[in-house]
């Protein structure tokens, strides 16, 4: 009889824990999708890899470098060995975790325009808007950019 109670408890705890985790995952996964920074020069696709979130460049307004006439590469990277890496596909958001209600932090953002990596916190102000704050050391010393969610035209039409 005791065993039966133990089994029932194990199953109950598993179910409850998993349902909580699932709910948190669903909230956290709202970050996934395609987003456009305010400058409009790129589109960033955010995906979940493992338990963390990463964002890579999937579109560039000017994909060709006017200087070299070749596809843009990460020419400003302080690491010389990475300067020939194509910008398209480059992961500029790294290691974000869902840490608070509508907030992802502990990650970094890379600015290919100057080759700098900043600490970064992401706040979802509504389902289609992100406040991306890159900062140096403390959040006061930073700048916030607002990103907007993009979606396939077909998806919009079908709604």
């Amino acid at each position: 009889m005791n065993r039966a109670i133990l089994v029932a408890l194990l199953v109950a705890v598993s179910t409850i824990t998993y349902s909580f985790l699932g709910s948190d995952d669903a909230k956290a996964d709202r970050l996934k999708g395609i987003w456009q920074p305010s400058h409009g020069k790129a589109k960033i696709k955010i995906d979940k890899i493992g338990s963390k979130y990463y964002g890579k460049i999937v579109w560039l307004k000017e994909p060709i470098d006017p200087e070299t006439k070749a596809p843009k590469v990460d020419k400003n990277n302080p690491d010389e060995s990475l300067r020939s890496t194509p910008l398209k596909g480059y992961r500029i958001l790294k290691d974000f975790e869902y840490t608070d209600e509508d907030e992802w932090s502990n990650g970094t953002i890379y600015d290919p325009e100057n080759g700098s990596t900043y600490s970064c916190v992401i706040k979802m102000t509504d389902e289609n808007t992100l406040d991306i704050r890159g900062y140096i050391g403390i959040k006061t010393l930073g700048r916030t950019d607002v990103w907007k969610r993009l979606e396939m035209p077909s998806k919009k039409k079908s709604e």
Partner: peptide, 8 residues
Amino acid sequence: YDDLDFAD
């Protein structure tokens, strides 16, 4: 990703 619309 060429032709996407804003969700809003």
